[in-house]
Amino acid sequence: MKLPLFIEPYANLAKGHNPKQQILLIFKQLGLPIIGLLVFLMLWSGAAKNIETSLGNFPGPIEVYQQFNNLLDEHQAEKERAQAFYERQEARIAARLEVDPDFVPTIRPYTGAPTFIDQIKTSLFTVFTAFVIGSLIAIPIGILIGMSDGLYRAVNPVIQLFKPVSPLAWLPLVTLVVSALYVSESPMFQTAFIVSAITVLLSSIWSTIINTAVGVATASKDLLNVSKVLNLNPWTHVTKILIPSAIPMIFTGLRISLGIAWMVLIAAEMLSQSPGLGKFIWDQFQNGSSESMSRIMVAVLVIGFIGFLLDRLMLVLQKFVSWDKSAVLR
């Protein structure tokens, strides 16, 4: 069995194969990234001390770490409060039912302020919704325009025109259109959620469309001939020949799209005041307390880390879907 690359040197070291080389390898794999991070933290804390703002010193790594813990504690406290709220309510309803068996209880939801963790969850939910719906639209369009040179030429100018548009340009239009069209008595989703989801979708689908189209268009001529000789019907042609050929390009597109989606989402939330990490940052900025900067910095780091995780997630998905298990994906 072949070991994952990053474990190999340890196994070899344990077996005593050429220890000097193994240690060098481990240093390269593990040591260098750690040194890089440490240098970054040192530069950060050094620079932070010398940046004076209206809210005090720029936060260094230690302050940020403390705030991160504070935010977690606040979330915990808030959860306990909600728990207590529901327990009180249940007790009250039970007491009432004893006296009056016909009483129809209504459970009122807890309305505390969303915590940092809640905002993360909201953002993730929004980005996933937008990304999944966007991909479901973008991949079929990409396949269609990849299959026909004429259609590609016709659609390409439109795509090229919209691809570079900043989400912030879309936002006001989307807000106006959504508030005009999405009126219902008991909306299933908040308008703000829909606005940010649509904005994210509009800014992120283009690279999936283009990459899918290119992947389909560059499917091997021989395989297309096979399909013709076998008289495959359009559905089989697409699912057995075109999509598998285009899988690597589709995933390249999806990864770019998801990266853009995540970046755009934060901006959209900030500007449209829709719940999520963007709003968290904006609220902290408006708040202007001495903790604000550290909290924003926590958000910045968390956003970066989640973006990184999302990309890894796509990579795992690609490895799972890809037929060529030997291909090196990074």
């Binding site: 091997s220 021989d222 395989l223 001939n225 096979v226 000789v229 076998l230 057995k240 598998p244």
Partner: peptide
């Protein structure tokens, strides 16, 4: 093209 005239391609062309 049609399956009654099957082709064996030079480079196998298996999926």
């Amino acid at each position: 093209p049609g399956p009654e005239r099957a082709v064996v391609f030079q480079n196998h062309s298996l999926l």
